[in-house]
Design a protein around this nucleic acid. Sequence first.
RNA 1: GGGAUUAUAGCUCAGUUGGUUAGAGCACCACGUUGACAUCGUGGGGGUCAUAGGUUCGAGUCCUACUAAUCCCACCA
Length: 884
Amino acid sequence: MEKKMTGADMETRFNPQAIEAELYKAWEESGAFVAHREEGKKPFTIVMPPPNITGQLHMGHAMDCILQDAPIRYHRMKGDPTLWLPGTDHAAIATEVKIVEAMRKEGLTKQGIGREAFLERAWNWKKEYGGRIVHQQRKMGVSCDWSRERFTMDEGCSKAVREVFVRLFEKGLIYRGQRMINWCPACRSALSDAEVVYKEQASHLWHIRYPGADGSEGVVVATTRPETMLGDTGVAVNPADERYTELVGKKVILPIMNKEIPVVADEYVEMDFGTGAVKMTPAHDPNDFEVAQRHNLEIITVTNDDGTMNENAGRFAGMDPMECRKAVVEELEKLGLLVKIEDYSHNVGFCYRHENTPVEPRLSEQWFVKMKPLAEPAIAAVKEGKTKFVPDRFSKIYYNWMENIRDWCISRQLWWGHRIPAWYCEECGEMTVSREDPACCPKCGGKLHQDEDVLDTWFSSALWPFSTLGWPEETEDLKYFYPTSMLVTGYDIIFFWVARMIFSGIEHMGETPFETVLIHGLVRDEQGRKMSKSLGNGVDPLEVVEEYGADALRFSLVMGVSPGNDTRYSTEKVEAARNFANKVWNASRFVLMNVNERKEFEVSKLETADKWILSRLQEAIRDVSDHMEDGDFGLAATKIYDFAWSEFCDWYIELSKSRLLGEDGESKETVKAVLLFVLENLLKLLHPFMPFLTEQVYKYLPETEGFLMLQKWPETNAELIFSEDEQRMQGIMEIIRTIRNLRSEMNVAPSKRTRLMLLPAEGWSETLRGGDGYFRRLAGASETELLDSRDTVKEKTVSAVIAAGELFIPLGDLVDFEKEIIRLGKELENLQKEMNRSRGMLNNQGFLAKAPAALVQAEKDKLEAAVAKAAALQNRIAELKENV
RNA sequence: GGGAUUAUAGCUCAGUUGGUUAGAGCACCACGUUGACAUCGUGGGGGUCAUAGGUUCGAGUCCUACUAAUCCCACCA
């Protein structure tokens, strides 16, 4: 057994680097993070949003970590069976893009090495980067249950994916079909609507004449993408548009291709945009596709998988779209069919993994999830409050998306991911969708090949809250921990992830997966810009941890942050948090250098200051607990900060010094016991935010065993609330502040001690007598004299009127009565303003009649005090005037 | 086009259900080697809470309008 350490062993500075790794190891090895089911007790469960295995953790992840670890540690200390389930996501597209990029540097291609070899590389990648991420999370101090760590492509999760796919297919909620989808030429894959990011682009509107087939002048169409005309199969106008009534039903000539195409009338066309005539490219525009369906227009695809023009584009085949656009425009100009070019700015969709690659709407055979039937109960669940968004406004965003949802394209033309469990018979063409890999065609016994595509990565993430607990098996964990308590995530993935988990949970588990969804904002840089690779303004959380410690980073990310709002990262904030950690460390050091045994205090022996700090502690416990419950971690952290620094350190510790050095043994014992009691409670309150610091300090506390992280969360104790003593203490504090203030104003050197005379107000004599040591220690008083009446003040003094009475500091020749009169006069003036305000309120019948009685009384008391103070000030001024 | 958020001290931001002298950190000024801490202490300066109305006995807080910034959704070619 190692020797118990004491305050004397503590360094003068908190040194996080020296202790973090060791503490984390000790926690983890002891099994403190592992969740245990306790029947009859309601668990607190969070499934961690699995970081992508694409690279390393960024500030957003750090934010995720602290916002989950804080409530997890809080609930664990409260004694709830607590599970925080970690894991990582295979991130199909994102990872594949990275791997392909890495391979390109080696001169390799996917196709070159083949599917099997590629997947081997991918698994190696997962091992390396998945491991790195988990390592980084540990550095942040996350207290998650690593024994339950999962990966979206591990055996269990893959089984869940397969089960869900087959179930939905059997229910008719998954189907395969030719639809207009978003195609990323860089991924060479389909994307879902959510994976397209629109960006405003400056462009042009080209006006092109399509001559009439009968030799008439035909029609002028306007387009933003002239190259797509190669795939045009019609022109549409609004049926009500009189300009074109004649033309409807006739044919025009598609220039360059020299092909006759029909003019059709369709409501979709807006008469007042462009020329009122729209070229129809059904294979490359969703709206055109719909029009084509209604009018039986031909559908011609003119691009390849990689975005280049295909053989249908005739002599433009092989060009990339921009090249082709230029060539087409030139050609049209030559033909005299380019009527005009207008400047035009419009939104262009880009791939969310290839920021500079525009997505191409394209007709393609893909797999889809039918969303309407899944969305409806998911909307209802949130409306009924079964899942609550915090802050509530995010439920509106959720409704808006869910109510306008379109079918979800889930197939991706990638290799890294869950392969679609569909097989096609090479003999009869029959499609088989199956939980188990079939050996041959169930219909004809013919040879099968599996669908080449994999699933959208979000298909497996959608199952995360239950697949990680063992579903589709009915495991004990699943029964006990589902539905989970809370999901913590950024608003940027509400559509991608949160919404999909909610409808999946309802569909497959019959219950929404979370009680609350706590949404946080983005961590931005110091100028408020989004942190991004391309800007190079990202800050690596690990570097911050190295330099300032995990606790400082954690605290800086929550302090003063309000739920749902973006926050700016700045080193100043981290420094402030680091300073706070050091402050707590040193306060602890002070306490522990003076207290080396654990003794209870007796309430009957408590002095005013003790009762004050114990009372303040009760309020801190209450507020912090309330804020933890509400998910207001910013307020919780602020409360702890203020209590620890402005009350415990600045006042109680300072006040304790005179007693610790004093002769009164009983007072000394009491103050020691209170110091230890308050410190220990403070450490507990702070632990969810600064786990390393608090755990380390806990080791030095006398007679403790085990980890702080497993100690009981403090509860308020009504017997330790002393309102009257709080007021007494406020009186003492006011005197100290006033003296400091006066000395500062009079330029009295801090080292110079001055006498203090106090004329107590009614009922304050006892308190002031007891304050002597405090005034000496904290206000530079050499001695304190209690006066019986003001007449006894014979010396030249500066004075002040405070709640506890009047105070006088004899400063001899430093005192200038004229200036004193002016100074006190100003104070009186302010006081009179305050009295006027107060009288105004109390003369207001409405206020008297409608405001709560306690408030009215409080105002009366305030006025009374002000009146008394004003009278005293007037007396003093009169007195001084006589002496001038 | 629809929706959301933000606007409070020089900067970054708090401010719980409306309760009446609006807070913090950083920055600034003055002073300070009192054995926990200079990653500190004491004192100070600094805001008509974007603007205009309204509700109320009372508005930073609620309502309406307006201005500005940011974001999300939709996508008229």
